[in-house]
Each structure stands twice: as structure tokens, then as C-alpha cells.
């Protein structure tokens, strides 16, 4: 889902940076409040950070014959609400953008928006909705992580389609093209992330406590 350095026109790069910045700022404040109110949250927070560090480093093969990486942001979004993940995701993306030439500085805002904002918010929304619908917790966790992961890649495709609409088919044609690269490759990997997230949440929470996760946004 990384948009590579230089692959967004300056206006787009600036706009996504402007959109993402308040989310990251709000996330930092939320993070501080969580730690001040409940110092014991340090450990599960570290686990959520660790999970996204691991998953976003793994470039996995998919049925399309390309490789892509999961995001691991759904777990933390369910446990602490989506705004915290804006910060944790931004840390990962900054590391990859500066040291690995994956993503970049000018595209950081756009990449933060897809992986650290859109994905976690979708994951959180799905989690809350499945809870309200009374779905079993494990199903809710799976759907949340699966759709959050997929949403990140749909957003990346949208960002590229907005910046590079097709000469003939316009935005819609470009979106289909980029989605066929990103989202289709991602689908099976998102399923795998959903399954692993169920296992990790299961290990992190005491039995029967899954439903109490992420009370506040």
C-alpha cells in the first residue's frame, strides 16, 4: 500500500498530509490520556504496536502472483480505538519511508491516511457493528481485521486513481486498474490477517472479555 516517493503530484501529497495531520495529533493526545488514566494499558498497547510492526514487515505471496503486506492495524483499533493507530501506523510508515525507501516523505501523509487512519476506522466500525448485531466475538474480530486490511488497499487505489485518472476511462477506469493491482492481491492476505488477529486477540484477552474491547473511539 505504499505510494512510492515522488509518485504523488505535489498538490495531492500536500492535501493528504493536511488531512492526516489532525488525526495523528488527536491520536497522540488520546494515547497520552490512555496512559495517564490507565498505566496498565502500556502492555496491551505495546502488543498492538508490536503486531503492526510484524505484519507490515511481511511481504507475502498472493494468488495474483504478486507480493503484498498485511497491515496489522485492526487489532489495536479494536483494543484502543482507531485514533491510537494513527500514531502507531505513522511510526511504522516513517521508519519504512526514511530507512527502507518504502513509501517516502512526500507520500507519508497519503500512506498514513490509508494504513493508519482509514484501515483502523473501518476495522473499528466493523467491530462495533458486529458487536451490536450480536455476532460471536471471534467472527467480529475476523471481519474487522479483514475489512480494515482490505480498506487500506482500496484507499491506496483511490488515492492513485485521483492523482492519475485514466486518459480515456477517467477516475473509474484508473480505480479499477489500481484496485486490480492492490485490492485483489490483498484479499487472501487480508483473510490471513483476520485469522491471525483472532488468535492474537484471543491470547491477549481473558476468556469472554473480547466484547468489552474498544469502548471509546
Amino acid at each position: 500500500m505504499h505510494i512510492m516517493e515522488g509518485f504523488l503530484p505535489a498538490g495531492h501529497a500536500l492535501a493528504w498530509t493536511a488531512i492526516s495531520t489532525p488525526f495523528v495529533v488527536a491520536g497522540v493526545r488520546r494515547l497520552k490520556r490512555i496512559l495517564a488514566d490507565n498505566p496498565q494499558a502500556r502492555l496491551p498497547l505495546a502488543a498492538a504496536a508490536g503486531f503492526t510492526f510484524i505484519l507490515s514487515a511481511l511481504k507475502l505471496p498472493s494468488v495474483t502472483g504478486s507480493c503484498s503486506h498485511p497491515t496489522g492495524t485492526g487489532l489495536g483499533a479494536m483494543m484502543f480505538g482507531p485514533s491510537v493507530m494513527a500514531v502507531l501506523g505513522a511510526v511504522v510508515l516513517l521508519f519504512q519511508g526514511l530507512l527502507l525507501a518504502h513509501g517516502g516523505v512526500t507520500t507519508l501523509g497519503a500512506n498514513i491516511f490509508s494504513m493508519a487512519i482509514a484501515g483502523p476506522w473501518v476495522a473499528y466500525g466493523v467491530w462495533k457493528l458486529s458487536d451490536r448485531l450480536g455476532l460471536p466475538a471471534a467472527i467480529g474480530v475476523f471481519l474487522s481485521a479483514f475489512l480494515g486490511d482490505l480498506a487500506t488497499y482500496v484507499v491506496t487505489s483511490t488515492q492513485l486513481a485521483l492523482a492519475f485518472p485514466d486518459a480515456e476511462t477517467g477516475f473509474a477506469g484508473a480505480l479499477a486498474k489500481f484496485a486490480s493491482i492492490f485490492a485483489v492481491t490483498q484479499a487472501p492476505l487480508a483473510v490471513a490477517e483476520g485469522l491471525v488477529t483472532v488468535v492474537v486477540i484471543n491470547a491477549l484477552t481473558a476468556r469472554g472479555q473480547m466484547h468489552g474491547l474498544g469502548e471509546k473511539a
Binding site: M1, M4, S66, C67, F182
Partner: peptide, 28 residues
């Protein structure tokens, strides 16, 4: 669940032995 996840990730390697498995970021 973990076994299933491993299977999903490993299956493409067996199903498409000739695929290049390059990165989607570069493809985009």
C-alpha cells in the same frame, strides 16, 4: 486458524510456481 493462515499464504507459491511475486507497490 494459524494453520489456515499459513495455508492461504503458502498456496500461491504452489499454485503459481512461475509467477514473479514482485511487490504490488512497484507494480503500481
Amino acid at each position: 486458524l494459524l494453520g489456515l493462515a499459513v495455508l492461504i499464504v503458502a498456496a500461491p507459491l504452489a499454485l503459481r510456481p512461475d509467477a514473479p511475486f514482485g511487490g504490488t507497490d512497484d507494480a503500481a
